[in-house]
Design a protein around this nucleic acid. Structure first.
Lengths: 349, 349
DNA sequence: GGCGGCTGCGCAATCGATATTGCTTATCGA
DNA sequence: TCGATAAGCAATATCGATTGCGCAGCCGCC
């Protein structure tokens, strides 16, 4: 590495091989059959290119062809089991298609989301997958103006196709399991099931509440507002709220529907202070899955969303050229307590 | 969206504003002061550009400037707490610098690693962060040939700067905690501490074994090969191995050093079949952190690697232009049992 | 009133690839 | 032997931005 000489271009290879740049381009891009180049010419050019360590400049190619061969996805955050599973599937399917995946997290910040979509448009990504955006329609409008095909994942948008988890069904199934396991108790207050976490305006939360309602109204009568503890997703808030609830009703509720893993973390923050026998009087379920959460001091029913199916359907919609706001729902899977290492993404390292 | 008219370019804006393309370029790129454009001209151009929904074509800019404003990182997989935390930090620091982060996972497949590095070189990323590569030196050579500054993270390379976790120190501290908690037992076989998971040729594993040795050789005499169960990272293998061990020595060992979360998952796969009282006779520690793993049926000491410090130091090295293979070690943090929601990345959603 | 300097902007080349068109030579059938 | 085809390649324009250079107008000053 004495000479930091610039990377060779097709012009360099052309000079070295005695061919013209257009011939070199065709030889190296695979278009040489269509251009009727002699195979020996092609082989020679490829030999020289390899020798010189040539690699194509995607910026130049992209500029000329008006396509970047990149696909973008935005997610709220990387550091989350569910979203990182989405990323993993998104990436695998992008690679299958010879596209370069670009995954950006926006920390649920609307301004960051807008900036990120602008950036991805500037880089001319060919499709955009939008997972869990705070403001789908603004983003959709931006994509529309830029003529960028896009699809919503996990949280639906109003003006483009969406593929979401079947939150209603998942919540019904989870609630059903909680109901089955709920101990009978003479205590009126503790006999009910509670839903904790999320925000009412959130699409997923409201669908899940519907599922929760559908099950418990049938068995226990009307679900009161008091049973829905919509304290957001932060562990800290959840810890406070569950502590307050336990104090109010004098112990753990007979049923508890936890709306996300981060909320569950908070709930555990309170549980850690309770004696093990406290849990015997409570049936607990969590929407979302974590192998460790599946093996706590007490049994927990969990729901695992089908990330690879979500992403696969999203690709299908995009590639079919769908632009109308259809809504595809994918059923999640119920995971029995104490189930571990059934990772959705095959072998882990 | 009746006319899918192409996105406007500076030429369109030039026509509409009556200015020349170069003036438009300067006005929109921020270079207008240096080019002594009148502020009123600039404002007018910006107004028209905004009105037309102009957004810059980064492929064209990148081609001309020979820089893409993208930074690349390769990681083994997204769907992993540690690596996704690295991603999150990597991305945040990229954004701070006005760069577009591109994170690719390679599933620990050497061929995929090479293909991915080639791709990133083709897209002209400005720096490359390489985390946990199977073959650092090959990748380093490719970057060298392409004149691409790069840095290794988590797993050191021989021919470029590296920032890694201080595995030796972390393992010593974790081993120290295990030692403190180890119950005395008359049973010779079960009195020892065991190390499970990883592969001997893996850098991190071998450093951690050194740390494990340093502690236990002082207290319990020579560590035998039988105490080091290097069964890779797959949960399945770990489950088999821990079961075999427990069978061989007639119960849980007095101390257990688990080398990664995935291995821990496997270990739990066996533990799930044991009665709760079995754990009283064993002190357990796990290298790596998961909030749920921190709250199991038994106390677990955990180690959390300092992802944001790792990434921050890596950026520093790259930006200082370091190319020599220096090795920077970052101390990880010991997390006491039953510690939850202290996420390294601030507020979670 | 000529000259230097500043202001404000346009011209044209350029980055590295691709796509279109066209120009030579064989090849071939009649 | 001649025109028609086709094979094999080169020339050149182009994608959308940046950038070095240059040019006109104006001001002030000796």
């Amino acid at each position: 590495m004495i000479l930091p000489k610039a990377k060779p271009t097709i012009y360099d290879i052309a000079r070295l091989s005695g061919a013209s740049p257009s011939t070199v381009s065709a030889a190296l891009s695979g278009a040489w059959k269509a251009r009727r180049l002699r195979e020996s010419t092609v082989k020679e050019i490829q030999r020289i290119a390899a020798e010189q360590g040539y690699s194509i400049n995607m910026q130049a190619r992209g500029l000329r062809q008006a396509r970047s061969r990149m696909v973008g996805m935005i997610i709220p955050l990387h550091d989350n089991r569910y979203f990182s599973t989405l990323s993993q599937s998104f990436e695998a399917l992008a690679r299958e298609r010879g596209l370069c995946p670009v995954i950006a997290s926006t920390l649920r910040d609307p301004a960051e989301e807008i900036r990120t979509v602008e950036t991805l448009i500037s880089y001319a990504v060919e499709y955009l997958f939008i997972a869990g955006a705070t403001d789908p329609d603004t983003l959709s409008a931006m994509c529309g103006a830029a003529n960028l095909p896009h699809v919503f994942v996990d949280l639906p948008g109003r003006s483009a196709p969406s593929v979401v988890s079947d939150n209603f069904r998942g919540a019904m199934e989870l609630s059903g399991k909680i109901l089955e396991d709920m101990p009978g108790t003479a205590d009126q207050l503790r006999a009910k099931a509670y839903f904790i976490g999320g925000v009412a305006s959130d699409y997923a939360t409201s669908r899940r509440i519907d599922g929760f309602r559908a099950v418990f109204e049938k068995s226990h009568g009307p679900v009161s507002a008091e049973q829905l503890i919509l304290c957001g997703y932060a562990p800290q808030a959840a810890a406070r709220e569950i502590a307050a609830l336990c104090h109010r009703i004098g112990g753990l509720p007979a049923g508890l529907f936890v709306n996300s893993l981060t909320v569950f973390e908070g709930v555990l923050g309170h549980f850690v202070r309770l004696p093990p026998e406290a849990f015997a009087q409570s049936a607990i379920g969590c929407y979302d899955y974590d192998p460790f959460a599946a093996f706590l001091q007490f049994p927990v029913h969990m729901v695992r969303q089908n990330a690879s199916r979500l992403i696969a359907r999203a690709y299908e919609l995009i590639e079919a050229g769908t632009t109308e706001p259809v809504l595809v729902e994918i059923s999640p899977d119920l995971i029995p307590p104490r189930t571990i290492y059934k990772e959705p993404f095959g072998e882990l390292g």
